[in-house]
Design a protein around this nucleic acid. Structure first.
Length: 323
DNA sequence: CGAGTTTGACCGGCGC
DNA sequence: GCGCCGGTCAAACTCG
């Protein structure tokens, strides 16, 4: 079993939750062999629009940890944290924990969550009817104890920016802010404002590098982005605005598009064409594979195949090639 | 006035 | 059982 250092899990930066977090330095692990200036040229305007002062130095961020990819079916993420302790995450076809979602069911979790939420709400209403205003100040939900709360798969991205809340094409409502332990920077909680869309995101600054914003997305949008450039609309990308960002947001959009395994292949080929040495089964592409499998539904579309994927917004067309 | 933000309280999970 | 902590709620508030 071959090991590759390629991705990042920022346990320290994003809290105690166990989920992968990518930064660009690891998604672009072979910067010497790839001319990033082309990517920067094509996306710089959007980066400025988004308030990102400088994202290219992300390529120089130190690797926070390593990921040991063992196979498509089972990989262990070993994360040496700053204090030397290790934690690990197992990415399986089966849920690693009762809380985690399997890959195939990821897209349905939002629905299940919503249904459960609705049910809880209904039961809560019943309780209120029975007990009236038994809470002095607030009527909070009586949470169900017999079932663990289902967590959506999450993506975390690190972005070097002075702006905490980066515009990504969706509208968000802030619903909370918490101080983060051992960090001078608070964590903000946002929820997608669209009705019936259960996507959340957390935004916080890395206390190890205050210039880096860690944005964590949870769930999948059930609607198109309300903010779409014309080119994006005309090219058939419904909720694709964030694809103008480098690979981090590309992954987010890729997740949202419900792409199928076959599209993954093109993704890898596309990445390969960009200079990523994705040549063997143990190469960094597995990081994309594993994460994508956790997040994508079984129902794939072929939009990715038709349109070269989302990278076309970032990468000059001549750098993309068909399979 | 509606939409979004702030902020303190509350809840559940987890470790000790 | 207790305390800590992450996550969420919702009243009050701000803003356009």
């Amino acid at each position: 079993m071959e090991k590759k250092e390629m991705a990042v899990k920022t346990e320290d930066a994003v809290g105690s939750s166990s989920f992968p977090c990518y930064n660009y330095s690891n998604l672009y692990p072979f910067s010497n062999a790839f001319d990033f200036s082309e990517v920067e040229k094509s996306s710089l305007g959007f980066m400025e629009l988004l308030g990102v002062q400088d994202y290219s130095p992300l390529l120089e961020l130190p690797q926070l940890s390593t990921v040991s990819v063992q196979s498509h079916h089972h990989s262990t993420v070993t994360v040496p944290s700053d204090n030397g302790k290790e934690c690990s995450e197992v990415l399986n076809h089966q849920p690693a924990t009762p809380n985690s979602s399997s890959i195939s069911s990821a897209s349905t979790d939002a629905v299940n969550d919503e249904q459960k939420k609705t049910l809880d709400q209904a039961e809560e209403d019943d309780d209120d009817d029975d007990e009236g205003q038994h809470k002095t100040k607030k009527q909070l939900k009586p949470k169900k104890t017999n079932q663990k709360r289902q967590r959506e798969p999450r993506f975390a991205f690190m972005t070097k920016s002075e702006v905490d809340h980066l515009e990504d094409g969706y509208r968000w409502r802030k619903y909370g802010q918490k101080a983060v332990k051992n960090s001078p920077f608070p964590r903000s909680y946002y929820r997608c404002t669209s009705v019936s869309c259960n996507v959340k995101k957390r935004v916080e600054r890395s206390f190890t590098d205050p210039s880096v914003v860690v944005t964590t997305y949870e769930g999948q949008h059930t609607h198109p982005s309300p903010v779409m450039p014309r080119s994006v609309v005309s090219s058939g990308y419904a909720n694709n605005f964030a694809s103008v960002l480098p690979l981090g947001n590309y992954l987010s959009q890729y997740q949202q598009q419900h792409h199928h395994h076959q599209q993954q292949k093109l993704l890898v080929n596309t990445l390969s064409s960009l200079g990523f040495p994705y040549n063997d089964s143990s190469s960094p592409k597995n990081a994309v594979f594993i994460q994508e499998r956790r997040l994508c539904s079984n129902q794939g579309t072929n939009a990715f195949l038709r349109d070269h994927g989302l990278l076309q917004d970032v990468v000059p067309s001549h750098m993309l090639k068909e399979e």
